[in-house]
Design a protein around this nucleic acid. Structure first.
Lengths: 150, 150
DNA sequence: TGTCAAATTAAAATCATTTTAAATTAAAAC
DNA sequence: GTTTTAATTTAAAATGATTTTAATTTGACA
C-alpha cells in the first residue's frame, strides 16, 4: 500500500502536482476499495470518515487529476454517475467489466482478451488503438442459479 | 425510410405504444442522421425544425422508449451526455466505436469482432452475455497522417 | 519573514435529465 | 356520435451530478 502511494506521489510530482493530505486521503480510499466501483459521492463519503473537513469539489478535482494521470479510469455504466476505478499495478490496459442486468453486480476481468481484436482493428481500419472500454451486459453466475430455481 | 418507420411503428404497437407525431418526427431525425451520434439536445434541436412545438422532455421520453425497444442504443463516450445511436437494420448486436483522441471523430464498426471473446467469457466466467459495449480510443487514420506531416 | 502559486473550502452556478401537474389527444365504450 | 378513459404532451419546476467562483489557506522558495 505505502509503496503504491509513493509511486502515485512520484507521478504527481513528475507533473509538478503535490500529494496534499486531501489527495492522499482520497487515494487511500481508492486503494482500500480497489474491488468496488465508487462514484465521486461514494469516495467523498468514505474520505470524509478520515478527513471530515474535505469538500466534495476537492474529491471531484482529485479524481479528475488522477484520471488524467491514468492512475484511475473513469467509467460509466449508464446510470448517470461516473465511477472511478484504480488501474491495477503494472496493468498495461484498462480491465473489462461484467455488469449483471439482474442484480447490478459488477465483476472485473483482468485478462486482456482483446489482443487479437485490436490487431484486427489496426490492420483493417487503420486505427491506432491506445485504449479500450469493454463492458458485457448479461446475467452473472449467481443470478443464473436464482432464475433456474424460482 | 418509410418501411423502417413502419417497422418501428409495429414495434411500438406490439407493446401498445403509439407512434405519435412527436415520436415520428424524432424517429425521422434519427434516420436522417444515422451516421451521427446525437445527444438528446442535438435531437431536440433537429426535431424542432420540423415540429417546433415539441418539448425537450418529450424527446427524452421518446429516446428512452426507443432505447427500451432496442431501436436505439444509448451510449456514453464519457463527455457527460448520453448519445443515441440507431441500431442498424437486422443488427443482432450493438456495433462498436472508434473514438479518435485527437480530433474527436467517431467511426462505427459493424462487424461483430467479439464472437470468440464472448464464448470465452461465457465459458471461463460463467457469465451469460446479453449485450456488449466496446469502444476503442486511439488515433484515426486521418490524424495519423497529420501527425506524420507536422 | 514575505511573496507567490497551487490547492482547498463552501457556496453558488451550471448542465443534463426527470418529474410534476395541467392540458390535449385519441382510441374504446356506450 | 358523444362520453369515458388512458396515454401523451407541454411547460415549468425539481433533481442530481458536476463545475465554477471567490475568498481563504498552505507551503515552497526568494
Amino acid at each position: 500500500m505505502e509503496h503504491r502511494i509513493e509511486k502515485i506521489k512520484k507521478q504527481l510530482h513528475s507533473q509538478s502536482y503535490k500529494l496534499t493530505p486531501q489527495r492522499e486521503a482520497t487515494v487511500r480510499v481508492l486503494l482500500e476499495h480497489e474491488e468496488d466501483h465508487l462514484s465521486a459521492e461514494d469516495v467523498y463519503l468514505l474520505v470524509k470518515e478520515k478527513a471530515p473537513e474535505i469538500g466534495l469539489a476537492t474529491v471531484y478535482r482529485t479524481l479528475e487529476l488522477l484520471s488524467e494521470l491514468k492512475v484511475v479510469d473513469k467509467i460509466n455504466f449508464g446510470d448517470g454517475v461516473s465511477r472511478y476505478d484504480l488501474r491495477k499495478e503494472g496493468a498495461e490496459h484498462f480491465h473489462h467489466h461484467l455488469v449483471c442486468v439482474e442484480c447490478g453486480s459488477v465483476e472485473e476481468i483482468e485478462e486482456d482478451l482483446l489482443t487479437d481484436v485490436e490487431s484486427q482493428v489496426e490492420r483493417d481500419w487503420g486505427f491506432q488503438v491506445k485504449d479500450h472500454r469493454l463492458t458485457f451486459h448479461g446475467i452473472c453466475k449467481k443470478c443464473q442459479v436464482v432464475t433456474v430455481n424460482s
